[in-house]
Computed example of a mutant assay.
Amino acid sequence: MEQQQKSDTLSHFYELRTRCIWIVIGLLLALGMTLPFANQLHQFFVRPLLSQLPAGGQMIATSVTAPFLIPLKIALYVAIALSLPNTLYQLWKFVQPGLYPKERLISLVGVLSSIVLLVAGASFAFYIVIPVIFKFIIGSAPAGVAVMTEIGNYLDFLVSITLAFGISFQTPIIVVAIAYMGVVEVKTLKESRSYVIVAAFVIGAIFTPPDIISQFMLAIPLWLLYELGLLIASLLIHQRDKAIGSALPDH
């Protein structure tokens, strides 16, 4: 018995090692595709700021290595994003043997939905929220002040905003998961709606600049996504209960 347990443990360890190797390979392949286009990617990601600067406006580098390292960092971040589907797939393959067939389907749908929502959140931040933020900030600059953002600070700001929105857009999956697994009842989640709205605005105040527009642009989608999660959870639980009820023998 003890020998069998050791064998199972080693088997899980080897499987985890294999999945980690495939994750690293996926990242390296993605990095090999993005590195040759590091400068083009840099130009693409700084466009939201440059498009809002007045004529002749430009970005600055305050360190010697920044012009070289920042494009490489952007290429790395894009490679991580491109390899994310492979990363999640490898993690799913690792836990798949311990799942029932229906749980495998649900978890696979959850992984795919998570990727879609992450991309949607990051795209919403990049194409809609960030230009609005920069337009507001640059338009609020006092007369005689030239707005010239340091490229390293800009990259950190860009990553934090896109991550905040990408993670916030996972709200429906989180709501569905905790409701479907019975951690919290849907009724309780609905009754907590007012607290969620307050929390959404608090999160918006923490992860966005101190202007009301960007706070609303994070808080309102977060609240709507929470409502979407409640709707999906209610439908799934209703279908599950209906299926269980029909499977019970009649008395």
Results as ranks from 00 to 15, higher is better:
102 K>T: 15
69 L>Y: 08
58 Q>D: 06
131 P>V: 01
140 S>D: 02
121 G>K: 00
116 V>Y: 09
40 Q>M: 09
75 A>Q: 01
86 N>H: 10
110 G>V: 13
40 Q>V: 08
142 P>R: 09
107 S>T: 14
40 Q>C: 13
40 Q>T: 09
63 S>K: 11
66 A>T: 09
119 V>D: 04
72 L>A: 03
102 K>V: 15
108 L>V: 06
55 A>Y: 09
90 Q>M: 05
88 L>G: 08
58 Q>I: 10
67 P>E: 06
114 S>Y: 07
95 V>E: 04
40 Q>E: 14
104 R>W: 13
69 L>N: 14
83 S>L: 03
89 Y>E: 09
98 G>A: 12
127 Y>E: 14
136 F>W: 11
138 I>Q: 02
57 G>I: 09
61 A>G: 08
132 V>D: 11
105 L>K: 11
45 F>N: 02
102 K>S: 15
45 F>I: 11
104 R>M: 07
142 P>K: 12
82 L>E: 10
52 Q>Y: 08
54 P>N: 15
145 V>T: 09
121 G>E: 00
133 I>P: 01
59 M>Q: 08
49 L>P: 00
70 I>P: 00
45 F>W: 12
120 A>P: 08
62 T>I: 11
60 I>M: 11
59 M>S: 03
120 A>Y: 05
122 A>R: 00
65 T>R: 03
90 Q>R: 13
47 R>M: 12
121 G>P: 02
86 N>I: 15
132 V>N: 13
87 T>F: 15
129 V>T: 02
52 Q>H: 08
83 S>F: 01
74 I>G: 00
101 P>W: 14
67 P>S: 12
93 K>F: 06
136 F>E: 07
54 P>G: 12
119 V>I: 12
95 V>K: 10
109 V>D: 06
91 L>H: 12
51 S>L: 06
91 L>P: 01
119 V>S: 04
111 V>L: 04
73 K>Y: 06
122 A>D: 03
113 S>E: 13
52 Q>D: 13
53 L>V: 05
142 P>I: 12
53 L>H: 06
41 L>S: 05
146 A>K: 13
139 G>D: 06
82 L>T: 09
80 I>E: 05
78 V>S: 02
111 V>T: 14
145 V>P: 02
58 Q>C: 03
58 Q>S: 13
55 A>M: 07
75 A>S: 13
51 S>Y: 11
42 H>R: 15
89 Y>G: 00
54 P>L: 15
123 S>Y: 10
76 L>T: 04
67 P>F: 04
54 P>Y: 14
43 Q>A: 10
66 A>I: 11
122 A>W: 02
92 W>S: 03
120 A>K: 09
55 A>V: 07
120 A>W: 09
142 P>S: 14
122 A>Y: 02
140 S>E: 07
40 Q>S: 10
118 L>W: 11
134 F>K: 00
131 P>A: 02
121 G>A: 14
71 P>K: 02
140 S>G: 04
80 I>D: 10
44 F>P: 05
137 I>H: 06
117 L>Y: 04
53 L>Q: 01
46 V>Q: 00
124 F>C: 08
41 L>N: 02
102 K>D: 13
42 H>L: 15
136 F>R: 03
79 A>W: 01
79 A>N: 02
107 S>N: 06
86 N>T: 15
43 Q>N: 14
84 L>R: 05
102 K>H: 12
